[in-house]
Write a protein that binds this DNA or RNA. Sequence first.
RNA 1: GGUCACGUGGCCGAGAGGCUAGGCUGAGCUCUGCAAAAGCUCCUACAGCAGUUCGAAUCUGCUCGUGACCUCCA
Length: 502
Amino acid sequence: MSESLKIYNTLTREKEIFKPLAPPHVGLYVCGPTVYGYVHLGNCRTFTSFDIVYRYLNHLGYKVRYVRNITDVGHLTGDTDDGEDKIAKKARLENLEPMEIVQRYTVDFHTVMKKLNNFEPSIEPTATGHLLEQMALVKEIIAEGFGYESNGSVYFDVKKYNEKYQYGKLSGRVLEELLASTERENLRRELQGQEEKRSQEDFALWKKAEPQHIMQWESPWGMGFPGWHLECSAMSTKYLGKKFDIHGGGLDLKFPHHECEIAQSVGSTGEEPANYWMHANMLTINGQKMSKSLNNSILPVELFAGKHPLLEEAYSPMTLRFCMLQTHYRSTMDLSNDSLKASRKGYKKVINGLRIAKQLVYPETAENQIDSKQIEQIDLIISQLYEGMNDDFNTAKTLAALFELLKKINSLESGQIQAENLGKECFDNLIKTYIVFVEEILGLFEEEPADQKRLVESLMQIYKEAKQHKNYSQVDQIRANLKNLGIVVKDMKHKIDWAYEE
RNA sequence: GGUCACGUGGCCGAGAGGCUAGGCUGAGCUCUGCAAAAGCUCCUACAGCAGUUCGAAUCUGCUCGUGACCUCCA
């Protein structure tokens, strides 16, 4: 199976057969969030996309080292390099230590990831935890002649880099055109403070900090902080080596972030950092990209609680995950009440099937009357499941096949297909494949019903009626059943209520 | 303005020169004490115009529309 996995490589703009550098090991680096605010649904989509990549590679038997960073310094606000650090700004606004900000939003990020059933990465390094590595990288870049110091800051010399290598190959940009375009932009905005740079396209490797700046460290170039693009280069190199297999991130990071990463790596080591570049497409809301800067973000908590003007009701984490899986990661995904409702139904259908699959037993004593046509169909569906995933992690395709497999499972349950007609081998394969794809590869699990309380309430209603009719055997039965669920009936003089068993 | 995507049935969404997913919705049938669930069947689409081809939703060109990136974003 592993030979046929194809990955769309942004670098070549083609689907390529995946060949790891050192099988069975695979190095996967994904650009993580800047933790200056709550993660929004758009962020979640990217990380869920790469969770699928991670899961499937694991399923294929690869030993994956999945590195996903936390950006906790260096990411500037505003249009220019003069912008304030995002973390520092938030800290100032909320009158907190920068690391309190980082902690708060990192915890939120992890909580949401967990709800969506995304695996934790193997390593989750932070920028502030790798300042030495970043400074070392700056030194290397300077030594190679691609970095220069200017007034306490260090910049990457894009023009010089472009003489030897090609800047912009990932995003398909030509430096001259970029320069023309930024010059025009700059004119329009009358940007100032760019005179430190030799060229507009140069980007900061290290920024000098003003005395009042609350996040700064000592460096060979004075007090300052690292540039945003630097951490990813430093940390991917540290944990995955100069060259590794897959580098991923959101499409909006393609330029300039990933382009700069490539320049930093090539500029310091002469080697391209990653073989395969993968980009997850944007999530839109009413046809517009969901982004913090556009102020149209819906937070996961808002979605799960149904508390947002755009939401008609609450949608569970698994509903959201299912919804994401129904769209290929390279397509934009538009979020709407209709699509979420449809996803909820689809998700529940899949989970009902999971329950059935786990309950079905092959009748050992039965006589076999093999239905080869049925077996053929099931084998075909199973191969389609893999075809979908092998085709650049096309979960939408896989899901289509999964529903076909589900029909077989439902037919087995209703007796429209007899298990013994499939033979033990086919039956086992059918059940196992379904469970593996749902739980292990797609990462869907059975959610506790959100309205469990209402279930209890309705049971309590029956209890009360039974009590009134003095149907005590039923009363005792309900009481015992609820106790098994950790709920005790509080049968008091004035009213009947329930409580969690203590 | 430059660069790059995309436009698929009532809705969401795969696909990618002939085999024309899947989910949701709607209609019908089977099963069923009723209902539900499940299974089966149906409604069968590819923005518009022109071209290439025996054949195009799929390739080419143009037009219209939408979005992304070019500036912080996953």
